[in-house]
Design a protein around this nucleic acid. Structure first.
Lengths: 345, 345
DNA sequence: AAACGCATTTCAAACGTTTGAAATTCTTAC
DNA sequence: GTAAGAATTTCAAACGTTTGAAATGCGTTT
């Protein structure tokens, strides 16, 4: 229909051989010119590169991968794609991967160890060049990842880190700081009875966040009250149980909540409303998440902790590619921290 | 740490050649045995296949792709990944693709034609074997996809279809039926003034859904009132403008809403609350989406139209792979409809 | 015993790159 | 004018498959 000036696009994609013929040069010269070999004459290089551009030459990835013995595929194992954190992190990973000539295979574990093991096996068989993993909520045994190690396939763990110290590469949110700031904000707003709703105890961020909370209390000279701390996971029932614990004694009821996850707060508030808790409308809360639909809620959190999932994902794959390219030794364990941002609504 | 009985996994992955050596056969026999060639002796086949399994032989994809002149990469162009519909559809696509040895490259257009064009160019250069596209909200000119056609690279359009009849392969939600059922439900609940909030006019589902609405009215002998119809897109401002139109005259205010998208309803309700519309609490609405956080809303829709995005995605890639494999001729344009489900909350 | 037909196996080229070694061309010095 | 040396280009093998053509083995037929 519209203008199409370049009719060079033929049916069979152009190869090095064809390019070489056009240029009346050998295939190796062309290859080396395109790859900027120092032994190739500068004038020749320019000539070749110009022609390549003109004919829309695109190297065949399969051939290169075959030669380089790489698959250019990265495996990503994560609990699910319904959680916005993971969706957004995948976006960061996918963008960066594509830009660097890699593809990703995504495996969801539904937070089940068994599925995590299966995914690891599947990805091993797919000959991935590297792995990015957000462990399931109760992964303690990491032996299903040993096979990668013995093949020299690097793994970067992201977001979720086991609560014991695992010698590995990791990219984590600086969740201590985030939780400190959130607690501090609530204190500044006059709260004294601030509850902490923690997540799965197997994951280290649960403790980091708790420490942020504790430290903010301490720095503001507010005594710590163990009754104001409860733990849950991603299950609604467990959250309700935790809330019941926190609000067991009406007199002592907290006036503010800090939660390891924003979604948990929604369940919490919903429950408090359902039992017609007298102060529910006064309770102020902050959680990790920054979900976009907060604006539709009747009793929204007063602030959110934006975890920058895209950035976490990008840092994870960026590190992984450096490990794959051996820019960083696989034994030189890295720990990258990505800051959160407290967003007041 | 734990038991690891199979120590066969060596550092260099096993190839056909190695397998052939072990078996004292030629590489071609082994290849043909694994690919179940009829000229190979059944006994030999079994022997080869047993050994392959034992040694964990996995064919090298790059080599096969090189030989077959395929990239085994599918490009997916869609407006964004923040919308749950697309996230869920990507899940369906990714699962099916991986199972069939394909990878996907995801490109987000942010509903901008310009970015759609760029994505198409990028994917062409990546030598994708096929394309799955959800067009941006105002794509009318499809010439940026012509290049694929002329190279014989199949395209499947999904979810979003241009409002004029484009000769192409498409996988769409049966959104007429969904909207009919939603409207019908509202009528059954006693509503007579039911508004229809339509989406971008360039996309065919806007009209299909409108027809569902109209037909339900007709079948229930309710006169059509043009004042009860307004159009918006994904922008909040436009939605507010549409709502202002619908609720312009207090007397005539609708008591129920059907929207082309659930998220739009949230904006609508929020606005009506903000202007303290007297009947806001009585208004019942239904939209396409079935968002999980509905349960947190104060005034939730009474029902949702579950569009089964995973199924839409799966149908799209399933069709695409058939086109790639030439099981279906590329000129034999297919139209697949995926049913919605009305979920009453 | 030679010739044939059949079942089965092997050969060898090809897919599109990369890259060390070998070959060629160009400079420069004597 | 030629030889050494540097600069540049080309050769050829390799990566791991697939596949049509050729070769092999073997039982039958004449």
């Amino acid at each position: 229909m519209c203008c199409r000036p370049e009719k060079t696009m033929s049916n069979t994609p152009i190869t090095l051989k064809l390019l070489a013929e056009k240029l009346k040069m050998s295939v190796s010269t062309v290859s080396k010119a395109l790859n900027n070999y120092p032994t190739i004459n500068e004038h020749t290089k320019k000539h070749v590169q110009d022609m390549a551009r003109e004919l829309h030459y695109m190297p065949n990835k399969s051939a290169i991968n075959l030669k380089e013995k790489k698959s250019r595929v990265i495996g990503v194992i994560l609990p699910n794609l319904l959680d916005h954190f993971f969706t957004r992190s995948i976006y960061g990973i996918e963008q960066f991967a594509t830009q660097n000539g890699y593809h990703i295979i995504i495996r969801q574990t539904n937070d089940e160890l068994e599925e995590e093991i299966q995914s690891a096996d599947m990805l091993l068989k797919s000959r991935v060049d590297g792995l990015i993993v957000a462990i399931s909520k109760n992964t303690q045994d990491f032996s299903h990842f040993n096979q990668f190690e013995s093949l020299g396939i690097p793994i970067v763990y992201y977001t979720r880190n086991p609560s014991f110290n695992l010698n590995c590469h990791k990219v984590l949110g600086n969740t201590f700081k985030g939780c400190y700031e959130a607690t501090d904000l609530l204190i500044k707003r006059g709260h004294r009875k601030i509850a902490y709703l923690g997540g799965p105890k197997m994951i280290s961020f649960t403790h980091d966040r708790f420490n942020g909370y504790i430290n903010a209390l301490k720095d503001n000279n507010i005594p710590f009250d163990a009754n104001l701390v409860a733990y849950t996971d991603f299950d609604k029932e467990n959250t309700i149980a935790a809330i019941q614990k926190l609000f067991a004694d009406g007199n002592q009821a907290p006036t503010a909540l800090v939660a390891f996850k924003e979604l948990i707060l929604f369940d919490a508030i919903k429950y408090l409303r359902s039992i017609d808790h007298p102060q529910v409308k006064q309770i102020e809360c902050i959680g990790f998440g920054n979900n976009s639909f907060i604006s539709y809620l009747d009793l929204p959190p007063i602030a959110s902790l934006e975890e920058n999932p895209e950035s976490v994902g990008e840092n994870a794959i960026s590190l992984l590619l450096k490990l794959i390219d051996k820019e960083i030794s696989i034994k030189n364990y890295q720990k990258v921290m990505v800051d959160c941002k407290l967003v007041v609504h």
